[in-house]
Simulated assay, not measured.
Amino acid sequence: MSDVTSPTGDLMDSIYRTQRHFYDATRKYFLLGRDRLIRDLAPPQGGCVLEVGCGTGRNLIKAARRYPHALFFGLDISEAMLEKARHEVARAGLKNRITLARADAAGFDANALFGRAVFDRVFFSYSLSMIPDWQQALAQGYGATGAGGRLLLVDFGQQERLPRWFSRLLMWWLKQFHVTPRADLKQTITSLGKGRVLPLYGDYARIAEVVR
């Protein structure tokens, strides 16, 4: 397993130690497509869902409320974000259905963390663009997807159908937060298996799915 005390973990903690307190209030305006991804999860009765890079727990809480018949798990490399997530999960009264753990997305052992090796759904929500070894993280997520299950993700696109000035401004702004939209996301997704990548809002964002 990758070391969660790595420079990446330290960097994420330094970024989010303060931001975690207002992260959800601000990100709802530009992390577009997250709720669509949650609607698309549709886990089976008694199913298990893993979020890789769960941050404040916002997505897990919304998904757990939408799918009361499923169990949810989340991992993140930032202890600062996990502290916020634990608080929010407890406040929502969902500690019995949401389990959190600290781990590196590019090298986690799901069985050691959660007592299960595979899940019916695995998803990434605006986390791949912050993971240095994002292709390995995707491979890890796909490996944790059970047979017949689905891996889903949403993240920033390349703004191909939006004005060039907007794209340049957005890319500059994202760089300040160590966010890098993945230009070759489609190729990586399709290399894993039967998958698809769809642009949202003029390619502001991209949503993807791979069937195991």
Rank of each mutant, 00 (worst) to 15 (best):
V154H: 02
L75G: 03
T26V: 13
Y23W: 08
S125G: 15
K28F: 13
K95G: 01
L94N: 14
T26A: 12
R65N: 15
A139F: 10
A63F: 07
D24C: 06
Y126F: 13
I98W: 06
Y142Q: 09
A144N: 12
L31V: 14
Q45Y: 13
S129G: 06
S129Y: 00
A70T: 00
A92R: 05
A105F: 02
I38K: 02
P132M: 06
V49T: 10
Q45T: 07
A103H: 02
Y67H: 09
G46M: 03
A101R: 03
Y67S: 04
A64Y: 08
G33P: 07
G149M: 09
L71A: 06
H87E: 08
Y29Q: 04
R150F: 08
W134T: 12
G33H: 07
G107C: 13
I98R: 06
D109H: 02
Y23C: 11
A117D: 13
A105G: 14
A80R: 12
A63H: 01
G148R: 00
P68I: 09
S78N: 12
K28N: 03
L60I: 00
P132G: 07
S78G: 07
Q45N: 10
Q45I: 10
G148Q: 02
L50N: 12
G107Y: 00
Q136F: 09
V122C: 04
Q135P: 03
S125L: 14
E79S: 15
K84Q: 14
L82K: 00
T56H: 03
R34V: 04
H69Y: 03
A70N: 05
W134D: 04
Q45M: 09
E83Q: 13
A147Y: 07
A90Y: 09
Y67G: 04
L60Y: 13
P43N: 12
Q45C: 10
K84N: 05
G57T: 13
